[in-house]
């Protein structure tokens, strides 16, 4: 029973949030678009000039861009595969009855609450360091050469660190979805002679489909922007081995002070993220009607 009066009151209550977000979205983004068409370096102020699509041409033909694009894809896909498969397995495990369920659940989700700089530095130094790390000790203990993770498999190491942070998220969401599964349906299937594999493939997996999609899409949004983990472990190196798109734009704009080139890179990142976002929005939009 909304009256005209309450409607205008509602609009008034909504406006601060809408206006602020609109400003946050439009003002800096249009500045980035504008900068991306300028030759603009912070080290030589006053020499800004219109260059059309030059920045895009340089950015998109820079070999570092293709490295960064490839690294971004490998990082996102690698973490997704590990966390989704790991999350399903862990979700299935934690859904079983066992002693101390609550405590194990708490242990499993803990890494999600660790700030990125802490987890990256702890893994880098205390585990992956080839001299003093725990992995090096374990390797020598069984007679192997210690492996220098961040020099010889830098991207894989970062995938491992980021997966450790995101596995809890995937597990928690998939576990929540599993727990909403109708037990009677499972029992009925069991009585009809469906084995564990069939029960998983034909009942659980379809039920999980939606949660898996949500996990993939939301993680992708965050994983496209992985930054701190790279900054404190490898600085994007060796070479460009661990430079993702986010890190490349950061290097270009805040380390090389190339505002024009960095802005063009930023816009490329925005476009890529939008492609993912469209799918996510559709998913969530559907849920809103339900």
């Amino acid at each position: 029973m909304a009256t005209a009066h309450s409607r205008s009151a509602a609009r008034l209550m909504m406006s601060p949030a809408v206006i602020l977000l609109l400003g946050w979205m439009i003002v800096p983004l249009s500045m980035t678009i504008y900068f991306s068409f300028l030759r603009y370096n912070l080290l030589s102020p006053g020499t800004e000039a219109w260059t059309g699509f030059d920045n895009y041409r340089y950015f998109l033909t820079d070999p570092a861009f293709f490295d960064a694009l490839g690294n971004t894809l490998v990082l996102v896909l690698g973490v997704l595969v590990i966390t989704v498969i790991g999350g399903i397995l862990l979700g299935l495990l934690l859904d079983q009855p066992f002693f101390g369920q609550g405590i194990v659940r708490i242990l499993v989700i803990a890494p999600f609450f660790v700030m990125p700089t802490v987890s990256a530095l702890v893994w880098k130094n205390m585990f992956m360091n080839p001299v003093n790390g725990l992995f090096a000790y374990l390797a020598t203990a069984v007679g192997l050469e210690p492996f220098d993770f961040l020099s010889h498999a830098p991207l894989a190491s970062i995938i491992l660190i980021v997966s450790w942070q995101w596995l809890p998220f995937a597990t928690l969401i998939l576990l929540t979805a599993l727990q909403s599964l109708d037990q009677e349906q499972l029992e009925a299937a069991e009585m009809d002679g469906a084995g564990p594999v069939n029960r998983f493939t034909f009942i659980m997996l379809p039920h999980l489909g939606r949660a898996i999609t949500v996990v993939i899409l939301i993680q992708t949004i965050f994983l496209l922007s992985v930054f701190a983990e790279i900054l404190v472990t490898t600085n994007g190196g060796p070479g460009t081995a661990t430079t993702n798109l986010t890190y490349l734009v950061y290097v270009q704009s805040l380390l090389q002070f190339d505002v024009g080139g960095g802005s063009a890179g930023g816009i490329v990142a925005v476009i890529l993220a939008n492609i993912v976002a469209i799918f996510l929005m559709r998913m969530i939009g559907k849920n809103l009607d339900a």
Binding site: M25, T32, F35, V249, A269
Partner: peptide
């Protein structure tokens, strides 16, 4: 007091979250 556009506004708000931070890093800085 949902209006005709409430759902659109909600979806749009969500979409701002998908803006990668590097897209606005330089102007904000």
């Amino acid at each position: 007091v949902p209006g005709k556009h409430t759902k659109d506004i909600l979806m749009w708000m969500l979409s701002t979250k998908m803006l990668p931070p590097v897209g606005v890093l330089i102007p904000i800085y």
